[in-house]
């Protein structure tokens, strides 16, 4: 064997050592980004397809099914009898609201034979009203103190009943459940930090969804008010009042659950 041959063998050994075939050439970091993007994409597709399916189901299911689901869920919701604690001075307004409630309920087929729509006064000075999943509606003390106009009160009541008629409460629940299921699949119920991260991401989307629901509830309330009174001027005035009270810069409304009041005023003005 010549020396030349020996050298070339050594060169081949060095080539083998340096060009290590047992470790793949792709870097970990690149792999990490590809995998994370893949997983997030997969979850988004899963979430939206499940959400669309559940939306179709909720919109098309029979009232009996809805009642069954509500019975299951409202077990945990105990309606508080706050009226006993409330002042007697709201009695007149509550009477009026209860009367209007029956009229609205009769006029709309979507509200037939479901909840009793109990109305209670909620001890808070904020200007607000809300509906809980079993159909019980709460008006805050601040709302009843500020708003004396009957048309505006009817508008608020109809807005909350509109949420119920559109089955928004069920949609919200289904979203939460789907998000929970997707997350638990993703993390196999292990990583809490990843879960909270994805939940924060999901917030934006559910907010805009909720604003869409508010818009539909506004439209529902508007049609009720137009039917009962023939105009919606007081409702617009009420919205303008909220607009003045809130006085928040426009861009913040992207983070809010309700559309900007000015947007809602436009909506009412265009649907006379």
């Amino acid at each position: 064997m010549s020396k030349n041959n020996q050298d070339s063998l050594e060169a081949r050994y060095i080539a083998m050592i340096e060009n290590n075939v047992n470790v793949s050439k792709s870097s970990d970091l690149k792999e990490f980004f590809i995998l994370v993007a893949g997983i997030i994409g997969f979850c988004i597709i899963l979430f939206f397809s499940a959400d669309i399916l559940s939306g179709v189901f909720i919109n098309n299911m029979s009232d009996k099914t809805q009642a069954k689901i509500e019975n299951l869920m409202s077990l945990s919701v105990i309606p508080m009898d706050l009226n006993s604690m409330a002042d007697k001075k709201y009695a007149e307004q509550l009477d009026f609201l209860n009367k209007q409630k029956l009229i609205i309920k009769k006029s709309n087929p979507k509200l037939q034979g479901k909840s009793r729509f109990d109305i209670f006064v909620y001890p808070s000075d904020e200007l607000n009203a809300f509906v809980i999943p079993n159909g019980t509606i709460y008006f805050t003390r601040g709302m009843l103190n500020t708003i004396k106009n009957k048309q505006a009160l009817t508008f608020v009541l109809a807005h909350e009943m509109g949420h119920y008629a559109n089955r928004d409460h069920l949609k919200g629940y289904s979203r939460q459940i789907i998000a929970g299921v997707v997350l638990s699949i993703l993390t196999s119920g292990q990583s809490d930090s990843l879960t909270s991260f994805v939940q924060n991401l999901g917030m934006f989307n559910s907010l805009s969804y909720s604003r869409n629901q508010e818009r539909n509830a506004d439209l529902f309330a508007n049609s009720v008010v137009l039917k009962l009174y023939g105009n919606n001027e007081s409702a617009i005035k009420f919205m303008q009042l909220i607009d003045n009270k809130q006085n928040i810069p426009q861009f913040i409304h992207y983070f809010s659950t309700h559309p900007a009041p000015s947007e809602r005023i436009d909506l009412l003005k265009h649907n006379k």
Binding site: L9, R12, Y13, A15, M16, N19, V21, N22
Partner: peptide
């Protein structure tokens, strides 16, 4: 196949 690749490099 990786082992064979190494052997081929060595000749």
């Amino acid at each position: 196949s990786r082992m064979q690749q190494q052997a081929q490099t060595l000749g």
